[in-house]
Design a protein around this nucleic acid. Structure first.
Lengths: 201, 201, 201, 201
DNA sequence: TATGAATGAGAGTTCATTCAT
DNA sequence: AATGAATGAACTCTCATTCAT
C-alpha cells in the first residue's frame, strides 16, 4: 500500500506553485473556514487543477498544516524585532506595551485566521503541537531576556506564562468584544502594571 | 419555502425525548466531536428514530446550540455556590482560590466538552454569543460582589475581565499542557496574588 | 472511527431490495466486469439511489462477495440432484456423464459469470476461499458416495481431485475454444473412460 | 482521431529502454497486480519518465500485452528441452513426469505471475488469445512427438488436451492448496498413470 | 528524445434531511 | 407522533494520459 510520493519541490516554479496553493488555502480557510472549503475550491483559487494539489500535499489535512506553518511564520516575523531587543528593568513596561501592541496588530490583521486556527488547534492534536512549539519558543526567549535583565530565576517561567496569558486575554477581549480604544488603553495600563508587579515580586 | 414548524414540546414524554437527544449529542460531541458525529448516531444513542430528531430540532446546528445551552447550565450550577457567597476584603484570596478550583474541576470533568465547545465558539458566531452571555453574567455578579465588598468602582470591570482571563489561562495551561500538581500550585498562588494586587490597586 | 452499521434486513421489503441490488450487480459484473462497473451504475440498474447501497453493503467489495455467494448458490442448486443420487459401480459412467453435462450446462448458462468470478478468485484471496469451500463440499460428497459404492479408500481423495479437475478442463475447453458438439462428445467419452479407470485402479 | 504513432524502437538504447519498462512492469504486476499498479510506478521502477512510456506503448493495456508476451517467452524457454527431446513408448512416463515437474517449477517460480496473468486472460479477450496460441503450439509439438512415437492418430488431439489440462490441474492444486510433497507425489503418480492409460488406449 | 508537471474526469463513500408508511 | 428507509448532492482523492519545455 505504498503511499504516493510527495514531491518536495526543488525547482523554483514548483516552489512557487506549492506556495500559491498554500496562499489560496490560507485565504479560503480565513474566509470560509477549513471544513467549509473543499479541495476543488482550493485548486481553483490557486489557478491549478484538482489533481496537482495531491502532488504537493499528502491530503487536505496536510495542506492545513502547511498553512498553519505559514501563519506561524508570519507571527514569528512580527514578533522578531521585540524578541531581539534587550530588556532592562527600566524599559520593561515599554517592552510589555510593545508586546501587547504587536499581539493586537497581528491578531487584528489576521483576525479570521487567528480564530479559525485557534479553533482547529483545539480540535486537532497535531495543530496544537505546532502552536505550542511556537509559544514555547517565544516564552523561552523572554525567559532568557528577563534573566539577563536581572530578574530572579525563582518561579520565573510560571510568571511568564501567566503574563503571556494575560496579554492574550486583553487582545482576545479587544478583538472579540470590540472594546473601544479607550477601554483598550485602560486594560493595557492595568495589564502592564500587573505584569511588572508580578515579575518584580 | 416555509420552514417546517418545530414543536416546542409541552408534554412530559416529549420533553424527555428532546432531553435525551440533547444528552446523547452531548456525549457524542465530547467523545468524537461535533463534525465527526452524524445524526444517525445521535438518534441511535438517544434510542429514537432518525426522523424524529427533526421534529424537535431545526437542523444539526440547532442540536449543537441546545447542547451548548445545556453545557452552560452545568457550568452555571457549578459556579452557583461561589456566586452567591459574599466577598470581603479579607476572604478575597480564598474566594479567588475557590474560583480557580471550581474552574479547574469543571474543565477537568468535561475536558473534551470544554475544548470542543470553545473551538466551536470560535468557528460559529451564534455559539460565541451564548458563551459571552454566560461570561458577562458571571462578571457582573463579581462586579456587584466586589462593589459590596468595598472595592473602588474605578476600572473595576476591566480589572475583573483581566482577572477572569488570567484564571482561564491558568486552567487552560493546566489542562492542555498537563502541568504537575506542584506547578499548578505555584501558578495558583501567583495568580491569586496578582489578582489581589490588581483589584486592590 | 466507528464503522457505519450495516443493516441485516429483516423485513420483507428490505430483503427484496438487498436482493435486487445483488441481482443488478450480478448482471453488470457479468456484462462489464467488476472493475468496470461503478456503484452509480449498480444503484441505477437496481432502481435505487447511490446512497442506499451503503445501507446494505459495507463497500463495493462486499457487494462482490454477496454476488459470488449468490452465484455459488445457483451452482449448488444445479448440482443438487446429482449429489443426492447414489453411485454404484455400474452407474458410475452415467453419473460422470451427468456431472460433465451439468458442469457444461451451468458454465454455459453463466459463461460470463464463470469467467469473471474465476478471474476474481485468482485476484482476491477471500473470493478464492468461497469457491474453495464450495469445491471441497462437493468433493467430500463424492468421496462419501464413492465409499458407499464400494471404492477403495486408498488415494481416493487425490483421485477425485484429479477427476474433478479433468471434468473442469473438458468444460473449459468446450466453452473457451468453442469445440464442436462432436469434439465434445469425443472428449466426454475419453474423460469418462479415464476417470472410471482411475477410480477403479 | 489519428492514434499517435508508436515507434518500434530500432536503436539499441531504445530497445533497452522499452525492455526495462517491460521488466519493471512484470515485477510490479507480479508484486501488486495489474490494476493496483499505476504508470507512474512503472516509470519509476524502470528509471524513466512517465511521459516516455507513451512513446513505446499505446496505453497501459499495451504494456500488459507485452509483459505477457515476455512471460510466455519465459515459459517457452523452460519447456524447450522437453519439447525437443523425442518421446518413445518406453520413456513416456518419464516425459510426463518431466512435464509435470517443469510445469510446477515454472508456476512456483512465478506463482504471482501465473495467478495474475491467468486471471487477466479470463478478463480480457486479447490476452486469452496469446495464451491459447502458446498452448496450441505446445500441444501440436506433443502431437507430432507422439505420432512419431507410434501412437494412434485416432482422437489423439483430444487425448493430449485432456492430459494437458490434467497436468495443469495437478499443478494448480499443488500451488493454490499448498499440498504437501507427499500428496503431490501421490497425485503425480496417479496423473502419470492416467495419462499413459489414456494415450495408450 | 525525454521530462515530469499538469490535467480533469471519475471513482467510492458519507450524511443531513425528507417522506411514505 | 414516530419510524427508518431512501435520497442525492457533495466530498476527498486517484490516475491514465497529455504537453510545454
Amino acid at each position: 500500500m505504498a503511499k504516493q510520493e510527495i514531491r518536495e519541490p526543488k525547482q523554483k516554479r514548483s516552489i512557487e506553485k506549492k506556495q500559491s496553493i498554500i496562499m489560496a488555502s490560507y485565504k479560503l480557510f480565513c474566509d470560509k473556514g477549513y471544513y467549509k472549503t473543499n479541495t476543488a475550491e482550493i485548486a481553483q483559487e490557486a489557478g491549478v487543477s484538482t489533481g496537482i494539489v495531491y502532488n504537493y500535499f499528502q491530503d487536505k489535512k496536510d495542506i492545513l498544516l502547511e498553512v498553519i506553518k505559514f501563519y506561524i511564520s508570519i507571527l514569528s516575523e512580527q514578533f522578531q524585532p521585540l524578541l531581539s531587543a534587550p530588556i532592562t528593568k527600566s524599559n520593561l513596561p515599554t517592552r510589555i506595551e510593545q508586546f501587547i501592541d504587536i499581539s493586537i496588530a497581528s491578531h487584528t490583521m489576521h483576525v479570521e485566521a487567528h480564530n479559525e486556527f485557534l479553533a482547529l488547534s483545539l480540535l486537532e492534536e497535531d495543530i496544537l503541537i505546532l502552536f505550542n512549539d511556537f509559544e514555547n519558543t517565544v516564552l523561552m526567549i523572554f525567559y532568557e531576556l528577563l534573566l539577563t535583565a536581572g530578574f530572579s530565576r525563582r518561579n520565573l517561567l510560571e510568571k511568564i506564562r501567566i503574563s503571556y496569558g494575560l496579554v492574550e486575554q486583553v487582545c482576545h477581549y479587544y478583538i472579540q468584544r470590540k472594546l473601544s480604544q479607550e477601554e483598550l488603553n485602560t486594560s493595557k495600563l492595568l495589564a502592564i502594571h500587573t505584569i511588572v508587579t508580578l515579575l518584580e515580586k
